[in-house]
Structures are given as C-alpha cells and as structure tokens.
Simulated assay, not measured.
Amino acid sequence: MSDSVAVSPRQAAHCSVRLPNGMAVDSLGVDDTLMVYRDIFEDDCYRRGGVAIHDGDCILDVGANTGLFILYLNSILADARVYAFEPLPATFQVLSRNIERHNHLTVSLFNVGLSQSAGRAAFTYYPRMSNASTMFPDESSRAALMGRDYILQRFRTLPRPWAALLSLCPSWIRVALAERVRKYYLKKHKVTCGLTTLSGVLRKHGICRVDLLKVDAEQSEQSILAGLDDEDWPKIRQVVIEVHGGDEAIRDMRRSLHRRGFQTAVESNPTFPSLSLLYGVRPDDSPRN
C-alpha cells in the first residue's frame, strides 16, 4: 500500500471526525477537515473545468494533507494508481492512518515535498490549521487583514446566542477578538522537510503518463512545476492547481499552461479572493494504454 519514507516517531496530536457521509477519519482539526470535505466531496472541486477522472488513472496528489482527496478517489473509482506527497511528519502520520483505514486503491505515500530541486527546506507548520502549512508563509499586513475579515464573517454564522451577542459588541471589540482568534490558529512551528522534484519522481517510478496532477501546496505551486523538465510535460494529461497570488498569478500560470498545450479554466474562491483553482486539460488527449 505504501512505500513511504519513515515518519517521525513522535505522534501527532489528532482527533477523530465523523464526516457528513458517515466516514470516520483521523484529523488534525475539525474545522480544517470539514472545510476540505465540503470542497472535495460536496463541491466536487477536482472534476470541474473539463477535468475527468477514470478507473485505471495514474494520479499525483501533491500536497496530500490528511488524505481526503484520496478517500474521495476511493468513493468514485474501483482502480487507480495514486502517488501522494506530504512533507510534514505530523500531517503525514494522519494521512497514513486514513489510507490504512479506508483505501482500496493502489496508493504510494511519500513523506516528502516537491520543489524545483531536491534537498531539504524549512516549512512553517500550523498545528491548529494544518491546511495552511507552507514553505512560503505570508505574514504581511494584507494577509492578516484578510484573515481577520474571514473570522469576522464566521462570527455571523455562530449558533445562538453567540452571533447575536457579538453583533451587539462595538466593532473594535469584534476586530480585537477576531485578531486573537487568528493568532491562536496561526501558532506556528518550523519543521525541516525533505524535497524532491516532479521529474525525479517520474524517472524513479517509471511513470510515463500522469492522467491527473493535483497540486495544493500553499504558495509552492510555481516551484513545484519548475521541477518538471520540458521533456516530461507531455506526460501530464490534466492538472488542477490551487494558485495563490490573485489575478496576476493566475494569468502567469494560465500562459504557462497554454504554452504547454493545455486548455484552461479558472474558478475563484468566493471566501478567499487571492485563491483560485486552475484547471488544465489537453484537447488532444488520447485513451490510456
């Protein structure tokens, strides 16, 4: 099932979460897990923009996190080959447990990140918001403002009587509380993780065709794709990439994919305007061997 790199012996703090579909999964945080579940299972975010997923596909899951995309693939496929990459040891431990409990596909797990070159790098790990862990943390005032605005929006969705009580507070109190919540969730640790490249993975495992390359790696998307050599791009048939950086980053990434022969589509994240999912499909795609 897994030919992964060994993980740290220290156990990650985790909990069990019952998903809306009834499946019980290991999790590093309930809110994180349910948010990702909605995106993948309910919104079907990886089968949009012309992207199709079929039995027999070879799929690369870059930024596998705790494994919900792989569990989704298990719900729609009888057979597939999946290579999944998650660099953070604590997250990888939870990913491994979820795949052991719920997987029937051929899955290889790798406790390593992908980048433009092999080696090691420092990651910022957020134990209370593992989905935001990254090599490139955005600690700008703009990012802090967006985080506070998101939390203020969430205040309005709290159950009674909390939403009503908060609405009665002066705005400066709500803002101060939102900032405390933001800092609580963004408590961070520095973790050094191993890195390899996409082309290195393709060569090592003899992969001649990738039916779907899924990249959700928190601002590392450019460096990940830079690790794919020119001669290997024709092996990639479809891509779904979470792109950070707003309209300019999307334009640059779309131009890059167009040069590689992909047709593209974009869906913006209504909650986080700086995030979008970019879909790329080759119009001349041929049947799998």
Rank of each mutant, 00 (worst) to 15 (best):
Met1Gln: 11
Ser2His: 06
Asp3Lys: 07
Ala6Lys: 14
Pro9Glu: 12
Gln11Phe: 15
Gln11Leu: 14
Ala12Lys: 05
His14Thr: 13
Arg18Thr: 09
Arg18Asn: 09
Pro20Asn: 08
Gly22Ser: 09
Val25Tyr: 00
Asp26Thr: 02
Ser27Ala: 10
Gly29Ser: 11
Leu34Asn: 00
Val36Cys: 05
Tyr37Ile: 01
Arg38Pro: 01
Phe41Ser: 02
Glu42Thr: 14
Asp44Met: 06
Cys45Lys: 03
Arg47Asp: 10
Gly49Leu: 09
Ala52Gly: 11
His54Phe: 03
Asp55His: 00
Gly56Trp: 00
Ile59Met: 01
Ile59Lys: 00
Gly63Gln: 11
Gly63Lys: 02
Asn65Trp: 08
Leu68Glu: 00
Ile70Glu: 12
Leu71Cys: 01
Leu71Tyr: 04
Ser75Ile: 01
Ile76Val: 14
Asp79Pro: 00
Arg81Pro: 02
Tyr83Gln: 06
Glu86Cys: 05
Leu95Cys: 08
Asn98Met: 14
Asn103Arg: 03
Asn103Ile: 01
Val107Phe: 02
Val107Ile: 12
Phe110Trp: 08
Gly113Ala: 10
Ser117Gln: 15
Gly119Ile: 09
Ala121Met: 13
Ala121Thr: 09
Thr124Cys: 13
Thr124Asn: 08
Ser133Ala: 06
Thr134Cys: 10
Asp138Leu: 11
Ser140Arg: 04
Arg142Lys: 11
Leu145Ile: 11
Leu145Ala: 15
Arg148Phe: 04
Arg148Asp: 06
Leu152Tyr: 13
Gln153Asp: 15
Gln153Thr: 13
Phe155Gly: 06
Arg156Val: 04
Arg160Asn: 09
Pro161Asn: 09
Trp162Phe: 12
Ser167Gly: 14
Leu168Asp: 06
Cys169Lys: 09
Ser171Cys: 06
Arg174Tyr: 04
Arg174Trp: 03
Lys183Glu: 12
Tyr184Leu: 10
Tyr185Asn: 12
Tyr185Gln: 04
Val191Gly: 04
Gly194Pro: 03
Leu195Ile: 05
Thr197Ser: 01
Ser199Met: 01
Arg203Trp: 12
Lys204Cys: 13
His205Ser: 00
His205Tyr: 15
Ile207Ser: 02
Cys208Met: 12
Val210Leu: 07
Val210Cys: 13
Asp211Trp: 00
Asp211Met: 05
Leu212Pro: 00
Lys214Thr: 04
Val215Leu: 15
Asp216Arg: 10
Asp216Gln: 04
Asp216Lys: 12
Glu218Phe: 15
Gln219Arg: 15
Gln222Ala: 14
Ser223Gly: 02
Ser223Glu: 15
Gly227Phe: 07
Leu228Glu: 13
Asp230Trp: 07
Glu231Arg: 12
Arg237Trp: 03
Glu242Lys: 07
Glu248Asn: 06
Met253Trp: 05
Arg254Ser: 04
Ser256Arg: 13
Leu257Ser: 07
Leu257Lys: 08
Leu257Thr: 03
His258Cys: 11
Arg259Trp: 09
Phe262Ile: 06
Ala265Val: 02
Glu267Ile: 12
Pro270Lys: 07
Pro273Trp: 04
Asp284Tyr: 15
Pro287Met: 06
Asn289Pro: 14
